[in-house]
Each structure stands twice: as structure tokens, then as C-alpha cells.
């Protein structure tokens, strides 16, 4: 039945299509006709929706591109900010170093002693001897006194070329002749295990107050007299005749950046400028 129907139906449909086509062409141009209007009403909104969707997709793509661009620009700016921060830190460190060197130079010039600046390489609290290693250029000699702006640091115990190891005052084996600045009473200052100093052989009848300054006595042949050593922090035991004073060091050994080797002969005590005053 299908094969019998096929050919007539073919001619029928083709004829109908041609008739439709001819009829439309003969119509006045510019009018769509009912079918055309219906089609336009149906397809128009759909096409409009597709157009809107396409526009939105294009907008999303554009935004994504802009976001990628902004992200890369942001990354570049962040890198630049990081670089500038590092540069600023470097400059700040240089400024601090310059200030430190300027203060050291001023102290060195203000002292009547022959001082020579030396750079602290590192402070060694861990080894058997509490010490610090300094770079002193021309070299140093054994038992040479080492001071800082705040006061006495220690003495040289070893040298090697332009480097030297300095035994700190706080080392348990360190000792020097010291005296109470106001009372003038002399004693023997030793390092303590707790990072503080002990001034021994101070007469018990001597009135001592917390905060009294302790300076070098100049009797040990190493340190010139009158250099600040520390301040009395407390009174400990002793014997019936003598008392032992706990002394807080004048120098903060953890913050040492620059020290001075005492080159010249020890001058009279009244010619020395107080360490704390010279730093200011």
C-alpha cells in the first residue's frame, strides 16, 4: 500500500508546495501572511531568548577575561609591593646601622681613652665560656679591655687575625676590681651563673642602696678606673665583716652590635665620660 501511495502522494505534496510557493510570490511584497505572522510570533520570542542567553554568555566570558587580567595584574602588584616592602626593610636596617655607627663614632671621639671600634660577630652563651666574637680589624691583644657605650663588656681572651674572643663580665670565671661609685668602697666583681654579677668583699657597715652605680676600680691592670659596670640589684650573704652585692650589668649583652677595644693607657678616673651620657 505504501509503494502504491508513495508516488501519488509525492506528486501531491510537491504540487502543493509549488502552489504555495507560487501563491506567496504573487502576493504583495512586504506582507507576511497568516502563516508568516504565526511563525514570527512563535520564533521571535525564542530567538530573543537565545539572543539574550548568548549576550549573557558573552558577558560572562568578558567578565572572566577581565577577572583573569585583574588577577594577573594583582599578582604583579603584590609582587611589587613585596619587593618594595623588602627594600623598605633593607633601608630601615641600613638606617639603624648608620645610627649605630654614628653613635659609636661619637662615643669613641668623646672618650679620652684610645678606643677602637670593633664589630660584634656573635655572642656565644652556649659554650663553656660566656663570650662574644668580635671583628677588630688590626687585631687585638690578650687581656685588652673591651667596653661598650653603656659600660664594661669584658676582656680579650683569644685572638686570631682580625678576630678576637672576648670573655664577658657575666662569665663565671671573669673577675675585675670594682668599686661603689658613691661610697668609694672597692671589692672584687665576679660573674654569676644567673647572668648577673657579684661584688664581694664590700664592708658590711657600708650603707648600700639598690641602684647604686658600680664602676671599675682600675686596680686590676686591665680596665681603666671609672668605667660603668652596673648597678646594685640586691644584697646577698657574705661573712661577718663583708657583704656580697648582686649587681645588674650596665651592658645588655644580647643587644651588642658594636664594642670598643681600649687601646690607650688608662687615664685618671675623673676624665672618663660616663658611658650612658656619651651615648646620648
Amino acid at each position: 500500500m505504501s509503494s502504491r501511495l508513495g508516488r501519488p502522494l509525492l506528486f501531491l505534496l510537491l504540487g502543493a508546495q509549488l502552489a504555495l510557493l507560487t501563491w506567496q510570490v504573487r502576493r504583495t511584497h512586504g506582507t507576511l501572511g497568516l502563516a508568516g505572522e504565526v511563525t514570527l510570533r512563535l520564533t521571535g520570542p525564542v530567538a530573543h531568548a537565545f539572543r539574550g542567553a548568548a549576550d549573557r554568555i558573552a558577558e560572562v566570558r568578558l567578565r572572566a577575561q577581565q577577572r583573569r587580567l585583574l588577577a594577573s595584574e594583582n599578582a604583579a602588584l603584590r609582587a611589587e609591593v613585596g619587593e618594595l616592602r623588602r627594600e623598605r626593610l633593607r633601608l630601615a636596617a641600613l638606617a639603624v646601622e648608620a645610627d649605630r655607627l654614628a653613635a659609636a663614632l661619637a662615643y669613641e671621639r668623646a672618650q679620652p681613652l684610645g678606643l677602637r671600634a670593633a664589630e660584634v660577630v656573635f655572642v656565644d652563651h652556649s659554650s663553656r665560656v660566656r663570650s662574644l666574637v668580635i671583628r677588630c680589624g688590626r687585631g687585638a691583644r690578650i687581656n685588652q679591655a673591651v667596653v661598650a657605650e653603656a659600660g664594661v663588656v669584658g676582656r680579650v681572651i683569644a685572638t686570631a687575625g682580625g678576630y678576637a674572643r672576648v670573655q664577658l663580665l657575666t662569665d663565671r670565671a671573669a673577675s675585675l676590681g670594682a668599686q661603689l661609685e658613691e661610697a668609694g668602697s672597692q671589692g672584687l666583681l665576679r660573674g654569676g651563673p644567673d647572668g648577673q654579677l657579684r661584688l664581694e668583699f664590700v664592708p658590711r657597715q657600708l650603707p648600700v642602696a639598690i641602684g647604686d652605680r658600680v664602676v671599675t676600680a682600675g686596680i686590676d691592670g686591665v680596665f681603666p678606673p671609672g668605667l660603668p659596670v652596673g648597678a646594685v640589684a640586691g644584697v646577698e650573704g657574705g661573712t661577718e665583716v663583708f657583704q656580697t652585692l648582686r649587681v645588674a650589668p650596665a651592658v645588655d649583652f644580647r643587644r651588642l652590635g658594636m664594642v670598643f677595644l681600649v687601646d690607650g693607657p688608662a687615664p685618671p678616673a675623673d676624665e672618663l665620660v660616663r658611658g650612658g651620657d656619651a651615648g646620648r
Binding site: 509525492l10 508546495q17 509549488l18 510557493l21 506567496q24 508568516g36
Partner: peptide
């Protein structure tokens, strides 16, 4: 034809013949 805006019969004729 409807999607293309007409005229109706143009694709109608061609597609009918192609399908057959």
C-alpha cells in the same frame, strides 16, 4: 521555511523530494 522567514514551499518542496 518558517524558521528562515519564508517563502513557504521553497524548503518544503526541496526537503520533500530529498526525503523521498
Amino acid at each position: 521555511d518558517a524558521l528562515g522567514g519564508g517563502p513557504f514551499g521553497l524548503h518544503g518542496f526541496a526537503d520533500t523530494l530529498v526525503a523521498y
